[in-house]
Design a protein around this nucleic acid. Structure first.
Lengths: 217, 217
DNA sequence: ATAATAAGTGAGTAATTACTCACTTATTAT
DNA sequence: ATAATAAGTGAGTAATTACTCACTTATTAT
């Protein structure tokens, strides 16, 4: 698709050559804020322009279409951060101190929570639009799968060989973990983003305990 | 709020006195279909009117506003089905054959899957709009909590007394279960609704196994 | 210093939006 | 059968939408 090329171009321009104008930066910042708050479909370009203190034309000069602005917000986040984090998490966690599976889960969870905390709004946008637009779903889910799933499966296999994990298909284990962690993230960061009274460490330990040993006494 | 009264009125009119016109029925059917497919914000009233083969004015005659049409679709589903199902599930499952906690989970899951299968599109609408509109969130989540959570907690307490469940706070157990089941439902019915190759019974048993005993060997 | 290019502007545009209203047609109560 | 009420219509409306374009201002290369 030429779409992808365009987007890769955008990413290249946006991230690598960081020749972002002040106004461009302001536009993206504002778009992120408003998209996260009210959703893409409910945010007009004139609104963004006003809030970013920029002429509406400027938005279109740089991003061409509103769709493109959304993608310029989402894709650098995804295509940059996911492979990077994959590298980071797995090399750091796996090579240095190879603890038990619990430790792996703990490190993974902490790492991802920190990451989302730093990118809360974009995470909210991605989750919302992932449900809304199946185009986005069709582009992101496979990308996600390619970059992450294989690695997770390998880790799971390793721990299985060590005899730490239950003997069911690895991709089943991986699905359970994703459903649980994904559900937790959506609930925490999207459904109730202003819930202050939670002890993060306790939450993490509870999740890990549940994933490792379940509810049976 | 007067809003609530209006809505209760709508529900009363829509469900109890089922004096729904053919055209009204067609409007609601079409709205459900389109909202589920493209989301509320991306579906125009003129589109609905055209697809339902009805004058646009007819929609507004009956529902007043587009917002109201959405609520007329969602709320009867929620406010009717949730208390009903609560009754149904708990009385049926709990009184008749009081099996182990696994059996309870199994019955609950099966019951809810059947229910969502019968109301797939509305479920999709609710999930999407729950993320998009925090008004809806603020109205539905508490309602949900009131009707369901207490009951679940009671059941959990019962099984705890029987010594079947781990000794952590009941609402923690309940949150884990909800996150897992919710995550599963969203993944299955919203993210990949056309995934055909899945053996439902296997899936259910895997979920239960995971929730009961976790991943540890 | 000058020319070339890129960034920025804002009035303008066609299309679409949710919603109204005067009117017609169907249904119900008498 | 008739009057009263409800259902249905569709042209019309003000507001908003994403986007354009001729033009001005700033930045970069020479």
């Amino acid at each position: 698709m030429s779409k992808d090329n365009l987007l890769d171009a955008i990413i290249a321009q946006t991230k690598l050559t960081k020749k972002q104008t002040d106004k461009q930066q302001k536009i993206v910042e504002t778009a992120i804020k408003l998209f996260a708050e009210k959703g893409y479909a409910n945010t007009s370009t004139s609104e963004i322009a006003k809030a970013a203190m920029v002429a509406e034309g400027t938005i279109f000069r740089h991003y061409g279409t509103k769709d493109n602005l959304l993608l310029s917000v989402i894709l650098p986040f995804i295509k940059d951060s996911i492979p990077t984090m994959a590298e980071e998490v797995f090399s750091e966690i796996m090579s240095k101190n190879i603890g038990c599976f619990e430790d792996f889960l703990r490190a993974l969870l902490k790492n991802r929570i920190d990451f989302i905390n730093e990118n809360k709004e974009i995470f909210q946008i991605v989750v919302k639009e992932l449900l809304y637009s199946d185009e986005l779903r069709k582009e992101l889910l496979p990308f996600f799968a390619e970059n992450i799933l294989d690695r997770i499966i390998k880790v799971i296999n390793m721990y299985k060989e060590r005899g730490e994990l239950i003997d069911i298909p690895s991709n089943t284990i991986q699905r359970m973990i994703f459903t649980m962690i994904g559900g937790y993230f959506v609930s925490r960061f999207v459904l109730q983003p202003d819930n202050l009274d939670l002890d993060e460490d306790v939450e993490i330990e509870t999740l890990i305990r549940f994933m490792m040993d379940g509810l049976r006494k």
